[in-house]
Design a protein around this nucleic acid. Sequence first.
DNA 1: GCTCCCATGTAATTGGTTACATGATTCA
DNA 2: TGAATCATGTAACCAATTACATGGGAGC
Lengths: 174, 174
Amino acid sequence: MELTPTGTVILGFLSEGEKSGYDIKTQVDKSTRFFWTASYGQIYPELRRLKDAGMIEEAGPSEGERKRIAYRLTEDGRRTFEQWLLAPASTLEMRHEGLLKLFFADSVDTRHRQDLISGIAQQHREKLDQLKAVEAGIEQADDELACDLVLRFGIEFQEWIIDWCERETRRKEA
Amino acid sequence: MELTPTGTVILGFLSEGEKSGYDIKTQVDKSTRFFWTASYGQIYPELRRLKDAGMIEEAGPSEGERKRIAYRLTEDGRRTFEQWLLAPASTLEMRHEGLLKLFFADSVDTRHRQDLISGIAQQHREKLDQLKAVEAGIEQADDELACDLVLRFGIEFQEWIIDWCERETRRKEA
DNA sequence: GCTCCCATGTAATTGGTTACATGATTCA
DNA sequence: TGAATCATGTAACCAATTACATGGGAGC
C-alpha cells in the first residue's frame, strides 16, 4: 500500500513502540519538525486510515492511564515501514522566503540587502537555539543513535548557514 | 493586499521586467527552484488574481513576437513588492525524506544505515550538478548580483551537506 | 472550583501538483 | 509533414494548516 507523507512519520514513530496521536505530535515537534512536520489535522485522520488498512492496531490504554488511544504496528505495518526505509528517498523540498527575498534584492540598496542577510542569519539562529535545547534534553548525546546523529546534523547545518551569512557580511564590509 | 506565496515570486520576477507566465515558470525552474517552486497550475490563476487586484497589467506582445501575454508591475504592484521585500521573512520549511529515514534507522543494521547516508549524499550531488549547470550558463559569475549570490549559496550549501555525509562515512569506517 | 494540560477529533480553507486539453510556431 | 517547443489554461486531486469543539484529569 502507498504511504502518504504523514503516514511514513507515523509508522516511523510507532516502530519505536506504542504511541498515541498526541505522543506522535509531541515527538514530531521536538525532533523531526526541522525537516518533516505534521499537524493534528493530518495525524488523526491518517491514524484512522492506517488502522483501516491494517497497518496499525489499537493497543489500548495502559493500566491506570488516563484515557488515550495508543497504537502499535501490525506485522503488515512493520513490513511496509521497512520497505519504505530501504527504498530510495524522493521528497526533498525547501521553501525559504529569506533566500527568495535576497534573490530579488538587486533593486534595493546595499544596506537593505545586508538587512536581508542578517534576517536569514537570525532565523537560523532561532532554529539553532531550539535544536540545542533539544540536545540539552538528551542524557548523553549518543552519536551512535541515528536520531541523535540527525539532531547533530541539524545543529551543524544551522551553524553553517549562520556562518555563511557572517562571512558574506564581512566580505561586503571589506 | 495579502500576497500568496506564488504571488511573491511572480511580483519578484516582474520587478525585473515584463514577463509572461511561461517566462516566469522557465526562470523559476532554473533559479529559485531550489528554495521556492511554482507550477503552471499556480502561476496562471495567480496572474489572473494579481491582475484583478490591480498589481500587474498586460503589456501585450512585442512587435513580431509569437502570441503571448506579458505582464508588468503597476505602481501598486511595485509598492506591494517592495513592502514584502523589506518585511521580515517567515516561511522556512524543509521536507527531507532522506533525513527522516536516517532518523528512524536505529532498527536497521549499520550497513543499511550507511546506505541511507550515501543516498542523501547522492541526492545532493544531483542538485549540485544542476546548480553548477546554471552557474556555467552565466557569462561571468558576478557576486555583486544578488541572484548570483544566492546561486553561490545554493552550491556551497549542497557541498556542505555532501561533505557532512562523507565525513560521517569516514568516521564510521574508522 | 478553576486553570492548565492531556487528548481526540473535525471543518473550512489554502496551497499545491499532476495530468490533461488546446493550439500556434519553428525547424529539420 | 512531423516533431519539438512555445504558450495558456483548467480540473481533479492531494496535502496540510488553522481554528475550532469537546471533554477528562491533575493540581492548586
